[in-house]
Nucleic acid binder design. Structure first.
Length: 828
RNA sequence: GCCGAAGUGGCGGAAUUGGCAGACGCACUGGACUCAAAAUCCAGUGGAGCUCAAACUCCGUGUGGGUUCGACUCCCACCUUCGGCACCA
């Protein structure tokens, strides 16, 4: 090899090694029972056509972990693919007349190039794209399997409609009453839609969060809140006219305190209850008013509670009292039964409502040591206490009362134990083109019929029109729409709705295990070998949506016997955002830094180093052009260090002669860097401190170089230091490490080397620096031989002039010694 | 309103189990190299006081209290910022 160029030519180096890695296929993985497996996964991107810094951060983190685990001897699977269906492709079609398929595939090609320029260790043979028929065939197949299991159904429901996207949205996709994607205010519409019965798995989704100690608590709490489990009872009140009014309550112990009932304005019984009495018009007007309000206004926290009397009465099944029935804006049709029993004394909302409309406030749970009076209370008392005014249940502790009253009601057939969830079933149909067609057919004779398995995939047609704001483009395709019924063979029409793209991403991590299978979505053996994902990395914005849907899919597939794991992601790392000038990079703010530009100017290794060095992964990261320069400078510094030595050390073998003080110090730094970097990657994912340790090693090597002569023994130690430096740097800056490794004489890729191990004996120092404190204040630092006795140490400390001057005229009452760390003298 | 996270130099951040606050980097300052600059290398760099200088002393991790020989770290109260949920009966 000739060495004409001493400068760090990142561009040449990076391209050279990327080509070589690809030619030699070094990141290809196959199942291997001899090695422990490790599955590293980064959330796959939507192919927008442009890599942004968030991607760079996500994939840099994943790549460090993947490369590190490979060097540690794991059989690592590290795949990448494309979450390729979705609305932007359709919008591009409308705006620019490009077909969504072409737009998407072009973007994939572009982004794949950008990803490759980062030098990430992906096994590209496992690449999947959710918009490819080979993939969505199996999404359709799974949909039909879910249908067979009774987990898919169609119903008319009040759903969220985004007028701008011209499609329905799942509950989870509505944020503050607005469309998550485009920020338009979402309407309510009554439409026939397809649902997944995710509520059937609510309990398991909740309970199994306990099986995920490797997830951030934040994410688990968010899922917990979203599922929103409440334990209580369902109680049926009868109206005087004989209608059943069933309510859900978490506080059956307060049932003697019910002084009114409330229905949601949308409740179908409202009309019945007002029929023929004098309140009908007033109620109608009220309901109209409430329904006119936008979702956003109705969800505002400070909205005044309002209601009207229906003119009807109900009977409390426990004490047979006659109580008025209201309609009010604070009761939601979507939760529970849409009817609430009003207990003003023990529920703050009911209290506010009762005071406004002069309804009775009756205390039935008395806190200890207090004597609440319904007439004078200024707020509800929602906590526990002793039951009063509750007939046979008087005197019971309210918690006990809950159980007793439920038992009583179950006995009398007026109520039962009931669990309620905030979680709704997952609405998955979308009135859009660029998604997976829902494999169902409408036949006048046979009804709604599933497509036969052998007819999959139902391909997206190409003869469609894209018009702004129109209905589903699929309806414009003649070839698609008309078909024959799989049951009777008669003429029939296809379903034109497509699936929510979150369906696609709910199983892609399984497909990676067996990406080319044409017989099934995957084989169990392969999935069982690779799953679970050992480390999943992505943005916290997916805390609820994607992560819960993927958990749901995994559980269903387990019940179907298709996989063995019941949780897909063992460990989850939620990375922070990349900020510029304190806010998220966005086109509208004009603060976007393009990865392509940075890689072009400094190289991928520098970009990766900076993004890993600037902050620990979970935290938001402030972009700094000067910080990037610093990392570039550091890589140059490494380059010059190794280049300055490699010719001299290349053929040296390390030897073990007597070491000088400087030698021992350098050796100690080398080993402690190995220890620190290993632990920082493995235990904490604190890549920033790992990199700073590597920087210290480089500083240590420069320092050594300046202070010793270049004899063979010293050079051998330098070589040892350089080799370890390059090995430790390899997961972070893979290209420069590969080049330097080759220059140091390595004839196989640095990324296939064993991760270095440190020698604990080399970390030991003969002399230890101890901190000496007087009354907890730092007064001196002393150097003592290792293993000094307590007595000798105390004597030495007391003899130090800096110490003794603080002891003058005082008495030492206590000496605290933390071995090998500190001495603290307590004086009076 | 409820739940959660965070608050440390001029800046990004470090301090892993209650034991040297400010590692590492950026920025800045001085020096070396150079005709000069860039690059590079070396050194300094929390604040205040004192000093020719060194040494030394005091203050200092959002605020106020507490526990402890010792607190960025633990406890209590509060302030600010960010994120999630928000009539969920």
């Amino acid at each position: 090899m000739n060495r004409l160029e001493e400068r760090y030519l990142f561009n040449t180096i990076e391209q050279k090694w990327q080509r070589k890695w690809e030619e030699e296929n070094i990141y290809r993985t196959v199942e291997d029972e001899q090695k422990p497996k490790y599955y590293v996964l980064e959330m796959f991107p939507y192919p927008s056509g442009n890599l942004h810094m968030g991607h760079v951060r996500n994939y840099s983190i994943g790549d460090v972990i993947a490369r590190f685990k490979v060097m540690q001897g794991y059989n690592v699977i590290h795949p990448m693919g494309w979450d390729a269906f979705g609305l932007p492709a359709e919008n591009a079609a409308i705006k620019r007349g490009i077909h969504p398929a072409k737009w998407t595939w072009d973007n994939i090609a572009k982004m794949k190039d950008q990803l490759k320029s980062m030098g990430i260790s992906y096994d590209w043979e496992r690449e999947v794209a959710t918009c490819h028929p080979d993939y969505y065939k199996w999404t359709q197949w799974l949909f039909l399997e879910f249908y067979k299991k009774g987990l898919v159904y169609k119903k008319k429901a009040g759903v969220n409609w985004c007028p701008s996207c011209a499609t329905v949205l799942a509950n989870e996709q509505v944020v503050d009453g607005k469309c998550e994607r485009c920020d338009s205010v979402v309407d309510k519409k009554d439409l026939e839609q397809w649902f997944f019965k995710i509520t059937e798995y609510a309990d398991r989704l909740l309970e199994d969060l306990e099986k995920l100690p490797g997830w951030p608590d934040k994410v688990k709490t968010m899922q917990q809140n979203w599922i929103g489990k409440s334990v209580g009872a369902e109680v049926t009140f009868k109206t005087e006219a004989g209608h059943d009014l069933t309510v859900f309550t978490t506080r059956p112990d307060t049932i003697y305190g019910v002084t009114y009932m409330v229905l949601a304005p949308e409740h179908p019984l409202v009309e019945e209850l007002t029929k023929g009495n004098g309140e009908a018009d007033k109620v109608k007007e009220f309901v109209r008013k409430v329904r006119m309000m936008s979702n956003v206004d109705r969800m505002a926290a400070d909205m005044e509670k309002e209601g009207v009397f229906t003119g009807s009465y109900a009977i409390n099944p426990l004490n047979n009292e006659r109580i008025p029935i209201f309609v009010a804006n604070y009761v939601l049709m979507e939760y529970g039964t849409g009817i609430v029993m009003g207990v003003p004394a023990h529920d703050q909302r009911d209290f506010e409502f009762a005071r406004k409309y002069n309804l009775d406030v009756r205390v039935v749970v008395q806190p200890e040591g207090e004597d609440l009076d319904g007439a004078t209370m200024t707020q509800a008392y929602p906590a526990e206490g002793k039951m009063i005014n509750s007939g046979p249940f008087n005197g019971l502790d309210s918690n006990e009362g809950i159980e007793k009253i439920i038992a009583y009601m179950e006995d009398k057939g007026i109520g039962k134990r009931q669990v309620n969830y905030r979680l709704r079933d997952w609405l998955i149909s979308r009135q859009r083109y660029w998604g997976v067609p829902i494999p169902f057919i409408y036949c006048d004779k046979c009804g709604v019929v599933p497509v036969k398995e052998e007819d999959l995939p139902i391909l997206l047609p190409t003869d469609v029109e894209f018009k702004p704001g129109g209905e589903s483009p699929l309806k414009t395709s003649k070839t698609f729409l008309n078909t024959t019924c799989p049951e009777c063979g008669g003429p029939a029409k296809r379903e034109t709705d497509t699936m929510d793209t979150f369906v696609d991403s709910s199983w892609y991590f399984l497909r990676y295990c067996d990406p080319q299978n044409s017989e099934a979505p995957f084989t169990k053996a392969k999935v069982d070998y690779w799953m679970n994902v050992d480390q999943y990395i992505g943005g916290v914005e997916h805390a609820i949506l994607h992560l819960m849907y993927a958990r749901f899919f995994t559980k269903v597939l387990k019940d179907m016997g298709m996989v063995s794991c019941d949780e897909p992601f063992q460990n989850l790392l939620t990375q922070g955002m990349v900020l510029k000038d304190g806010s998220k990079m966005s086109k509208s703010k004009g603060n976007v830094v393009s990865p392509e530009e940075i890689i072009g100017k400094y190289g991928a290794d520098t970009a990766r180093m900076f993004i890993l060095f600037a902050a620990p992964p979970e935290r938001d990261l402030e972009w700094s052009d000067q910080g990037v320069e610093g990392c570039y400078r550091f890589l140059n510094r490494v380059w010059r260090l190794v280049e300055g030595f490699y010719a001299k050390v290349k053929d040296l073998e390390s030897n073990n002669q007597a070491l000088s003080k400087e030698d021992k110090e350098l050796r100690r730094i080398i080993h402690s860097t190995i220890k620190k970097v290993t632990e920082d990657i493995e235990q904490r994912f604190n890549f920033n401190t790992a990199i700073s340790a590597i920087m210290e090693l480089v500083n240590g090597l420069y320092h050594y170089k300046d202070n010793v002569s270049e004899n063979e023994q010293n050079l051998a130690l330098v070589k040892f230091g350089l080799k370890n430096l390059v090995l430790l740097l390899a997961p972070f800056a893979p290209h420069i490490s590969e080049e330097l490794w080759a220059n140091l004489g390595g004839n196989q890729s640095v990324h296939l080397q064993n991760w270095p191990e440190y020698d604990p004996a080399s970390l030991e120092m003969d002399e230890i620096t101890l901190v000496v404190q007087v009354n907890g204040k730092l007064r001196d630092k002393i150097s003592v031989p290792k293993g000094i006795s307590r007595e000798d140490l105390e004597a030495k400390v007391l003899a130090e002039p800096k110490i003794s001057k603080h002891l003058a005229g005082k008495e030492v009452v206590k000496v605290i010694i933390v071995p090998e760390k500190l001495v603290n003298l307590v004086v009076k």
